[in-house]
Design a protein around this nucleic acid. Sequence first.
DNA 1: CTGGGGACGGGGCCC
DNA 2: CGGGCCCCGTCCCCA
Length: 264
Amino acid sequence: MDPLWSCVDSSSGLVEVLVASKFADRGRCPLCALVPERYPLAELPTTTDGSLVSTCSPTLLWSVGLPLYSAPSAPSPNRPLDLSSPSSSGEEDEGRTSDPPSPDPAERFRCGRCGKSCSSPAALSRHQLSHCAAAEPGLGAVENAPAGPAGRVPFRCKHCPKEYNSLGALKMHIRSHTLPCVCNTCGKAFSRPWLLRGHIRTHTGERPFSCPHCNRAFADRSNLRAHLQTHSEVKKYQCNTCSRTFSRMSLLHKHSVSGCCSSA
DNA sequence: CTGGGGACGGGGCCC
DNA sequence: CGGGCCCCGTCCCCA
């Protein structure tokens, strides 16, 4: 289960609640780009009726009733392989599955922006407010952004370090922070309506994409495409060293990482 | 270790 | 400009 993260909204002073794995970008809070604090669910502020306080963006729809938190200390033990390590270390991306920051108390209460150590989560929150207030006077997409190499001002996301050359692209990206599309069945939120529709199929069992070669059907077109590769005698992805072919890039990547070509 | 399915994220294109 | 959709890709899990 995802750990909860909290962030103090700079305008209201209230605490925003986030699910780490869906938002974590290099371990930073998407609301203010700082290293967030993490609380056990029981310590989160609640309203009088016991629901979690949720403020900040009016379109941020995480609120109540979700099975949110499990163990407060241990970081997620998944990600046995870091497949992105050498190749995608370049500019952006890879933020989707960043692990939470170290649970070491000395690190938990350290400001990710200036490194200041604080004695408690609350003290750190107060300290971080000073950064938020200084860095975001308004809606914050464009202002203060330096001009690009061609003299264009990039459209910068106020929730994360990403920048875009068009407002439309930025707005589309921001949906991945606000997650306005919410499943009525389980409460899970998505950035786009068709992602939600695909998710709803996991509840209904609908599988509109069927394989023409066998009787299998899939809820997701991409999964059908991957499945079709299994019917193909010539696989799409080939190892440069041993010439083995694979139906998926991920399988080829696993093949390489596990040492066929290098470590033997 | 490998192959495959399930779920989902994001950029880009089209209307 | 916004929404819908396609495509590509990733991650996780399981047999």
